[in-house]
């Protein structure tokens, strides 16, 4: 059963919310996402006291008459980072869940799924001047740290996706899945380009564009004083007079974002905060062939 935003909003605690969504997603996939693991030889090392005896390479001792220890690398299928925008605008929500709520539920759910299939999942909470990171790990105990970090996120400050992109490019050493949960309200003109530029570094980039129903429909009639959620700006307008123009501008922005993602070969998912999250994730996973 898919969970709508209203139902989900009544569940307290991110862990419960994430688990509820995960179950929905798994029941929707009908297939275990567990891909298994493999152990791969990495190098030899001269034996030193304290090394595991069982890793001694007896064939090498026979050849060289010295003790060598085999070192192995435990290969995971995927490293992933859930980048959640925690700017002030993400705190906007008119359907029970704010955009940040939806973003972190989705991030938690995906993390849950990844760690469940023994992939590494990390999280980065970003805003202007903030980059709080939980590095990717695949251990089951790591999920708790991810959940805690997500749950502690508070919407404030300006959006700064350009800085986020630069930080990710620096911190991610090899191919990773980067999932960005944001409304992309960034004044920086190149912010989106720089996020999408991660794709050129072989990262798998997926953008989750979080949009509230009120932003899509602009359902205001009476003269209203609109205030900014990131800075002190405000404007008094008659919404009826500008509705057509607003909707035109906003839809153009949504389309431009989507087109930019497609052009950069990145996954793009527009997420309405009032639609069932598991449905969104199923749509996303379905587009990727049921795999992360």
């Amino acid at each position: 059963m898919l969970l709508d935003a209203a139902t989900l909003s009544r569940i307290t605690g991110l862990k419960l919310r994430a688990r509820a969504v995960v179950e929905g997603v798994l029941s929707g996939l009908h297939k275990s996402p567990n891909q298994g693991q493999s152990v791969e030889f990495a190098e030899h090392k001269e034996y030193a006291p304290g090394d595991e005896i069982r890793h001694l390479d007896w064939k090498a001792y026979g050849k060289f008459d010295k003790y060598y220890v085999k070192r192995y690398e435990h290969e995971t299928n995927l490293r992933s980072v859930m980048v959640v925008d925690t700017s002030g605008s993400m705190g906007f929500g008119t359907t029970g869940l704010s955009k940040l709520d939806v973003g972190r539920i989705m991030a938690a759910t995906l993390s849950h799924l990844l760690i469940r299939q023994q992939d590494a999942a990390g999280v980065a909470l970003v805003a202007q001047g903030r980059f709080a990171e939980i590095p990717p790990r695949s251990s089951a105990g790591h999920l708790g740290a991810v959940m805690d970090a997500l749950e502690s996120a508070v919407p404030s400050g300006l959006t700064d996706l350009a800085m986020t992109a630069d930080a990710l490019a620096e911190k991610l050493p090899r191919r990773s899945l980067v999932c960005v949960f944001s409304d992309f309200f960034d004044d920086h003109q190149d912010a989106l380009k720089r996020i999408l530029a991660l794709r050129s570094r072989k990262h798998d980039v997926a953008l989750f564009h979080l949009v509230d129903k009120a932003e899509l429909e602009f359902p205001y009639d009476d003269p209203t004083l609109f205030t900014s959620m990131e800075d002190g700006r405000h404007v008094e307008v008659n919404p009826r007079e500008i509705r057509a123009s607003y909707l035109e501008e906003f839809n153009r922005f949504l389309d431009a974002t989507r087109d930019a993602c497609r052009a950069a070969d990145c996954d793009y998912e527009r997420v309405r905060t009032d639609e069932p999250i598991d449905e969104v994730l199923l749509r996303f996973l379905g587009r990727r062939g049921g795999k992360l």
Binding site: F185, E215, F226, M229, R233, I242, Y246, E248, E249, F250
Partner: peptide, 16 residues
Amino acid sequence: PREVPFAALDFVLRSQ
């Protein structure tokens, strides 16, 4: 006027 915090304020300003 009724005061409403709004995330997409840039678009409102642009439309105005």
